[in-house]
Structure formats: C-alpha cells, structure tokens
Write a protein that binds this DNA or RNA. Sequence first.
RNA 1: GGUGAGAUACUCAAGUGGCCAACGAGGGCAGACUGUAAAUCUGCUGCGCAAGCUUCGAAGGUUCGAAUCCUUCUCUCACCA
Length: 430
Amino acid sequence: MNFVEELRWRGMLHDIMPETEEYLLKHKTTGYIGFDPTADSLHIGSLVPIILLMHFQKAGHNPIALVGGATGMVGDPSGKSAERNLLDEATLNKNVAGVKAQLARFLNFDETTSENPAQLVNNYDWMKEISLIEFVRDVGKHLTVNYMMAKDSVKKRLDSEAKTGMSFTEFTYQLFQGYDFYHLYKEKNCMLQMGGSDQWGNITTGTELIRRKAQGKAYALTCKLITKADGSKFGKTAGGNVWLDANRTSPYKFYQYWLNSSDEDAEKYIKIFTFLDKETIEKLIKEHKEAPHLRILQKKIGEEVTVMTHGKEAYENAIKASTILFGKSTASDLKSLDEQTFLDVFDGVPQTEIKREVIENGLNIVAAFADTGFLKSNGEVRRALKENSISVNKEKVKDDCVITTSDLIANKYVLLQRGKKTYFLLKVVG
RNA sequence: GGUGAGAUACUCAAGUGGCCAACGAGGGCAGACUGUAAAUCUGCUGCGCAAGCUUCGAAGGUUCGAAUCCUUCUCUCACCA
C-alpha cells in the first residue's frame, strides 16, 4: 500500500518534501507526529494526525506518537496571534498521562500482534537531561536567528501589524521541536516527521538541524488542516471543544457533531475520518447526492468515527438517544421507558436534584427553569415562553403550566427542554 | 528608564456632560421553513412581572445630572534606550 498515494486521494496531503514518497516506497520507515498536552484529553482536531499515524502503520511503517511533555512547557507559537499561557508541571503530567491513554486506543502498540508496533515517547524524558549551556552550544549554534525569523509563525508575530510581540520562550520553540526530530533520528532512526500544515516550519527546522548537525537527510510531510465550509472552527461547538474523552463529550454528543456536518464538509470528512476504500466512498457520495435529506454520508461518518473512538455499544446508544430526542416521541413514549433506558438516553444531559415535596406542591414553570439553573434568569424563561420554545416532557407548555407528580417519568424525572436541542433533567429526591 | 497608545457588555467596536441599559458588527439563543442541514426571514441577547435597580478598569471628586470632566491608582500593549 502506498502511504502517500493513499493520503493524496483522500485529500489529506498538503505539503511533502521532495523524494519523500520515493523513500517511503523503498524503505520501511519510522515516522513520528507530536501531540501537545494542552489538556488531559485530545479533541477531534487531533483525530487527523492520529489517523495519519494509523494509515502510516497500515502501510507497514513504524509510527511513533510523541507526547510533548517538554515542548508543552514552552508553547508553540504556530497559528497563535498572542503569547500562550504556560501550564504548570502537575497539570502537564496529568495531561501527558491522559493523552497517552487515548492514543493507545487508536494505534496498535502490541509487539506480539504487530510487525510494526507503534511506540509512544515523551520528549520530556530526553529534554530534562539537557542543560541550558549544552542546548545553546549544541543546538542553537547550528541555526541562525535569520533562519528562525524567516518562519511564518515567527514572522507573523514580528510583523508591525501584530498587536503583540513574541517572547524569547516561544521564539525558541522551533528549536525544541527540531531537537526532538534530531533525537529520534539519532536514537530510533526516525526519518520522517508528519503533522498539520501549520507545523511545516517547525518540522523543517528539524530536518535542517539533522542536516547540519548529523549531515543526515530526513523527510517531512504535512496534512491539510480541517476546515468547515461555513468558516467556523472545526471541532468546536457552542459548548466548547468536542473531546475524545467520553467523560468530557458524551458519545451521543460526539456522534451528533458528525451527524450535523454540512453536505459539503461530509464529502471531505468521509475520506479523511473513515478508512473506507475509494469505491465504497464514491458509491456513498453518489447515493447521498440522490437523496441528500437522508444524510447517508453524515450517518456513515458518525458511525465509523464513533465506533472507532468509543466502541460499538456507545455508538448504538447514541443512535437510540438520537431517535428518541429527535424523533416524534411524546410524553407517553417517554413515560413508557424504564428508568435504565431513560438514563442511557439522557446520559450527559445536565441535571439537578429537586425535593419531592416541591413537585407535590406543584412547581411553577418559571421556577422550574430558572431556579434549577437551566436558564439564567426569570426574565429569560419568560422570554423563552413568549417564543413558544419551552417544553416539558417533549410537549410545549405556556406560562401557566405547573409541574406536578403526574408529570414524572419513572416516578423520578422531569424532562425540561428549551428549543429543539437543549435539554435539562430534574431528578426528584427525598 | 523614556515615549506613545489604550482599558466600554460574550468578542470586536461606537459613544467624549442629559435623548445611554449604552449605535453597529460578529457570535449566541429562539421561532418559521427544512434534512436534527445550508440559505433566508423574524424576535431576543444586564437583573426585575413592574416601579425600578446595578453596569462602561478601580477608588474618590466636580455637577441637579457622568461611560463621558478632574484627581489618584491598577493593569495592558507598542516603540526607543
């Protein structure tokens, strides 16, 4: 399997260093991608480099996932218009552990079942040994400031139009990343670094360092950054990032994110985020165009990615939840659910507890929405009522509505809803 | 250390004594339409049912009245040393 060709038809390839393709065809190669431990979970933006490594492994090469315990302490200026905040060491350690655990789900690290098992490294392990003097003499000496300043990531920040300057710390970042590549080249015979297209500058600093310091030749390849047709940022929703950690973003929401892709994006995503072959994908795209309202592509992407990330069972629950939440279910449908199914469906929906006697005395609709913290203020609830956007147990209500014990589902829950997609659960206790 | 610019709601950004709860844009939320889309149209977007109350970096002051004027302070940024 030709790794580069595979990326090319999937529309993932952005930039590639000359001779890289030829080299990869001839040699079983070790290549790496770095992951930034800015949080204790990766989000779906990191899915692309992960998939890149998966393709790399499938093509028979040796992938290395590098977690940036050291570089995370410095802060990559690429694509950032302002100085980054530094993370403290404890947070970083926690993040490194979290990121490691997630990578293990996607790549095969098992030496007994794979001929080319993936490896996981943390650059803190070798960076911590290096003294400042060593670094300045052995790394810094090989590259000129002129060279470093020519990088886009740096130029943008020195530009007179930029409103903020750039600290020495961030300026040095490319040397750190460059040194990583050099280190892996030396220690693990790693010949290739991959990453998002914003990493090109940092990656070439690495190949340059290898050339000057070790007289070696190393290769580079970047993939396209994922964009959305409407210009908004990929992987973000109003509620924040879409994470790979089920505790941060429930599988249901994760599935929904993909399902809500626009048609235009879906055609790109199915190539990038699934491992389906070319014929299958072309067939799906054709079917989708004939009946776009069925959203065949979005459903397939949602299925493939959710199963890959969270497993089959989580995917099936996400489907079940979607059907109930968006199908034409009514209050009686909801009440017919047993408690466990109900909880599965509404897993991840924010909820709050409420005393039973409050319901027994009859709970005013405004209080039910405002006092529980679902909506911000009484005024907002009244506004929403005027818009006719408030539902209790999937049924629209007016401002004279009072919630009583007859509204309870499984004798315990009340489902509040604002608009079509925003849910909130009241749980009766005591 | 010097010089200059600046701090207004989620963000950008007007406003330079009363007509300001504060133009506009973006974002967000909701309604209609729909495919749980896109595009479009409409409404909302400090708190309060209301009277009214609290907001324009902070604290004081001037005034009948301040986001706007004065004083002090805090912070941010750029450039020069």
